[in-house]
């Protein structure tokens, strides 16, 4: 088990180091997220009364679309370099490749969220305690990376991959978006996350565990195809 986790982390580390050198995926995601927030800020008339209701939804829409760009790029780069075959050739369980990719993608998306949140808070004049907000952010982001990584691997070899990925991911991701937005709204309203959003957090956790397990079992077949 230790060897399995070590190899998964090794793959994630390789992705992070490649990204640190090229800044290809992070740059695209961060710029897209910042631009989206700016556009929302100018396009929507967010009055002080409704901003707490709108803010969580706007935030998650921004994260999801920025995340989709990043997920697409992470596999397109592997495919263009032909390096995915190099990973498949190694004596590594293919679910460890998936786990490594999920770790890498989760960290990419979380780092974009960390850059985007302060600007979002300033432009929309909202604030939230960091600790409680981190819970729905982390659970939602993990769920997004879990689903997105599988579908990015499926869509990368198709000609319509840029279009196909959101079409495949978004319908399945709807329950996570709803739960993450509701739980985040509780935090923005400065109410108790555990008392008022326990069921939403439960839904997020269940989704993450269920789809992560399914993806671990199916990823070998996904890579094979």
């Amino acid at each position: 088990m230790r060897g399995y986790l070590r190899k998964a982390w090794l793959i994630a580390w390789k992705d992070l180091l490649s990204e640190w050198r090229s800044r290809e995926v992070f740059g695209v995601m961060a710029v897209f997220a910042l631009l989206t927030i700016l556009i929302f800020n100018f396009a929507l008339d967010v009055a002080p009364l409704n901003r707490l209701e709108l803010a969580p939804g706007l935030l998650w829409v921004t994260f999801i679309f920025a995340g989709l760009l990043g997920l697409n790029r992470s596999f397109v780069r592997e495919r263009d370099q032909g390096s995915l075959e190099g990973l498949m050739l190694a004596p590594v369980d293919r679910s460890a490749i998936y786990l490594g990719k999920v770790i890498g993608n989760t960290l990419f998306i979380l780092s974009v969220e960390a850059v985007t949140l302060p600007l979002f808070a300033a432009l929309f004049d909202v604030s939230a305690p960091v600790g409680p907000l981190a819970v729905p952010l982390l659970l939602g982001t993990v769920g997004f990376a879990v689903i997105g990584t599988v579908f990015a691997a499926i869509s990368v070899n198709t000609r319509l991959r840029d279009v196909l990925l959101p079409i495949l991911v978004l319908p399945i991701f709807v329950p996570v978006v709803i739960a993450a937005v509701k739980a985040s709204a509780t935090v923005f309203a400065r109410r108790s996350l555990l008392e008022e959003s326990r069921h939403w957090l439960g839904l997020l956790l269940t989704f993450d565990v269920l789809f992560f397990t399914l993806a671990l079992l199916l990823f070998d077949a996904v890579l094979e195809e």
């Binding site: 390789k14 180091l17 490649s18 050198r21 370099q81 032909g82 390096s83 075959e85 190099g86 050739l89």
Partner: peptide
């Protein structure tokens, strides 16, 4: 060990 058409190497590393 395989030497294929692609290098399997990461150009940024």
């Amino acid at each position: 060990g395989l030497v294929g058409h692609r290098s399997f190497l990461y150009p940024d590393l």
